[in-house]
Amino acid sequence: MTSGPAAPYAGLRARAAVRAERGPGGRTRITRLRSDGPLALRESGGAVYVVGAGAGPLGGDDLELSVEVGPGARLSVRSAAATLVLPGREGAGASRLAVRAHVAAGGRLVVTPEPVIAAAGCDHHATAEVTLDEGAELVWREEIVLGRHGEPPGRYTGRLDVTAGATPLLRHELRIGEDATSGAVLGDARAAGTLLITGADAEPYAEEGLAVLPLAGPGVLVTAMAADAVRLRERLTAGRRRVTP
């Protein structure tokens, strides 16, 4: 320990954005693609990839991604690899990632990144606010792994707010903290995830580690828990097969 107080670590601040619009002839064009710092965006094979430039997010980082899908446009957002959320330097504080997305009438947004790994000591807050206009569709997948192999996870909070028109469709937060190992929350699972498919329907279903939940509004939430990321993906995929568009 040093004797004096360490200078606060400011972390990185990044504001990235992507916009997709329906062009002449019905094809979607990416009309805006702004990378910033650790949020590097690449267009490839009809999708936009978030390519991690450097490690992180690290404690103290403050990242924002804005996603705009125009009327009738279709956009798929993925990531090139799993995201490893790490603690920052001492005193750096929490890391934040805020995603704001708007899907205009008749548009479709599919967000299926690779898992987020909450490494030991991290303190990460992810928020996503998605607004859907009339007839807009959303597929949103989130997968969280509790720590790297053999380590306890740090703190992680992921909140997803989806609003269809003026109606809240889903308000869903997963907190990885001291109570996550409760039998009411995740038990001994090491990975947890959800898959939201709006406009779809399904019969309610559950088995160990998986539930298929038709929402009060138009859409289905598949929620799953598993021992690792591979089995988690298998369960989410099995759940998705029970969803009818």
Partner: peptide, 17 residues
Amino acid sequence: LPAASAPALDVFAELHD
């Protein structure tokens, strides 16, 4: 307005049903 979820409780609720 808080929105903390409990995946296991969701699974239990549907299994119970």
